[in-house]
Design a protein around this nucleic acid. Structure first.
Lengths: 358, 358
DNA sequence: CCGGGTTGCTAATCCGTATTAGCATCCGGT
DNA sequence: ACCGGATGCTAATACGGATTAGCAACCCGG
């Protein structure tokens, strides 16, 4: 007789059905507005069910919907580099911002895969017990992505979009045209008379890094032929300690470089400080052009002559693309599965004509 | 004979079972390490199953797990104010940062309810088709939360934690002790000789706003008795246009106020600009103390004398608390369901002794 | 050689929803 | 009166995994 034990179970379609005096199937039909062929519901019944639905405040269980094969308007978001060391935060913040904005517009929720374990320095998306399949599709962020995982996702037919260009076959992405941007920056320096460039870059095989490099080298070649390109002084010391940066600076000067092409904003800041300490006038004696973005929009932006990649728009575009891919009514043509956004240049104040230009 | 039609269906326990020559139930038992009573699996069988699991790279479907009543280590995150107008961004960024950091540590994923519709100015968590139940529990952020929704969540027994104090019965929260912080700020001004305070606040009934107010009023009462408190000039014009702020400034001066207690950083910035334009020396003639935080850690922080609420730690603590609530092994005692963090004061440079203190 | 316990596994059921086959019932026509 | 077709609904099943009751085989003691 212990009917007191009525655990107030969540309201389900079955319960609605009981209350409205119909079957669970009918409730489902009403909810999904199936007016066609099988399962026709007359106004009267429909209203009765809708009435009960309103009274109870029924909400479908998303897990059950998903299990039954429906989408849930949930977009997964995965970052290959851990997003929370403060260093990467400045990189990810505008991206996440763009994603959330687009998601809000699309009426999608976002599932952040913060749980991914770190193996060999990068995070793994496809670990045991990953919650990937809860999302309808996924956005991938990061400088470097594991090609094996990308291939696996493509093979599994799981819908996703990479933020940034990816070379793996069949991977949809939205990218920034770093090659074009870097070329334009270098071109401006060339136009001002610079001929000897030192390239302070990071040691990575990430596509975006390679693109920037290709832009730098390509433009030098276009302007000055193979000789100019060959004279580019490549120094993979971006991110190194001050001592290493300092000796790179000396080396660049000794080699006659009149302009430093620096990969990241942070390193540019440090290099300028080191130059000042060494009595080198920037940009008078040594120009500085930066391929990365200012860490923060305001504050210590340094007014570098630099690229200004539209990160927020990038992420926003990727989100929209993913939503389109997921939309069964929208058959996205192949050539729209890979998009590229132009990369504007910020004039800044660290690029002037070299001293010996006269 | 068209066996070519093998839609490469996702790998399931049933498939694993076929490959290992056991039943689906056995696979589940192996996966969940049930060594006890019913369902004992000898080493040999277990190894065979594990072998297949490894070969296939099986990953459980989180929707099915959830439907079967298990947790998924997913924490929902809901913000009552839309998080993406840039104004609120500075408010939410440190909170989200703290949440993500804690989630990463706990091995949880985060589900951001970006899809919530806006009704009557605030976002609604409990709309039709909300995905709340995909999460094991939920964090609620925002200055003002709908008490009706909070009550509903409590009634449904859905696990959640509010970030910020909430007055609704049965709501677990982690809050910042704004009353104490505001009291200390006001106390410092009192100690320097200030007696006439103007309080530029926002017109909100949010608990945190009320707490700050209570701190201001309470401290004045404690120091100077009811008279001092009664002389507090309350001006609910925070966030108003420049004209309104300007006339509030005049009014405060006319009433003999020697210090402005300002609710938000942004308004403090504007007030200082208006004061400068009007030839009022800050802090010489008029001190300024701010109850809100600097919008950004660096840059134009203004060096105000202000509170420095530990937002990131707050969110982090809330996340940890939620995780504890969700942990069936952890029976969180009632008095730990509501936590309060102290609110430090930043000395800053906008509070000095009043001119007539001599 | 029989009874009771233990071991190793599986069949069946549940979770909440969507979908489909198909069973009554009624209506109109002949 | 009987048949074909439309109408209104439900029973059954699938989705993938967890759990439990219980079957079969074996072991041991008497």
């Amino acid at each position: 007789m212990t009917t007191s034990q009525t655990p107030p179970r969540r309201i389900t379609q079955r319960r609605i059905a009981e209350l409205a005096g119909v079957s669970q199937a009918t409730v489902s039909l009403v909810l999904n507005d199936k007016a066609d062929g099988a399962g026709r519901i007359p106004e009267e019944t429909r209203d009765r069910v809708l009435q009960v639905l309103r009274e109870t405040g029924y909400v479908a269980d998303p897990a059950a919907r998903r299990l039954a094969g429906l989408g849930n308007k949930i977009l997964g978001v995965f970052t290959y580099e851990p997003a929370f060391p403060t260093e990467s935060q400045d990189f990810y913040a505008p991206l996440l911002s763009g994603i959330e904005e687009a998601a809000e517009e699309l009426g999608c929720d976002l599932l952040l895969f913060t749980s991914a374990p770190v193996v060999d320095g990068t995070r793994r998306l496809l670990h045991e017990n990953n919650r990937l399949r809860l999302a309808d599709g996924c956005l991938l962020l990061g400088v470097e992505m594991d090609p094996v995982e990308l291939e696996r996702l493509v093979a599994d037919g799981f819908p996703f979009v990479a933020v940034g260009r990816r070379e793996v076959e069949g991977v949809p992405y939205v990218a920034i045209d770093y090659a074009q941007g870097a070329a334009e920056l270098v071109g401006r320096a060339w136009d001002l008379g610079h001929r000897r460039f030192a390239y302070v870059h990071v040691d990575s095989t990430g596509e975006s890094v390679m693109d920037r490099r290709a832009g730098v080298v390509g433009e030098l070649e276009r302007r000055g032929g193979p000789v100019a390109a060959a004279e580019l002084l490549a120094m993979p010391v971006d991110g190194a300690d001050d001592a290493a940066l300092r000796s790179a600076l000396d080396e660049a000067r000794a080699a006659g470089a009149t302009v430093l092409v620096v990969e990241t904003h942070e390193t540019a800041v440090r290099l300028r400080a080191l130059a000042a300490a060494a009595g080198i006038d920037v940009p008078g004696t040594l120009s500085l052009i930066v391929l990365g973005d200012a860490a923060r929009a305001n504050g210590d932006s340094g007014d570098f002559t630099r690229l200004s990649p539209p990160r927020s728009a990038l992420a926003s575009a990727a989100t929209t693309l993913l939503a389109r891919i997921l939309d069964p009514h929208d058959d996205v043509p192949d050539d729209e599965l890979r998009q590229t956004l132009a990369c504007p240049v910020m004039a800044g104040a660290t690029l002037v004509a070299p001293e010996d230009a006269a």
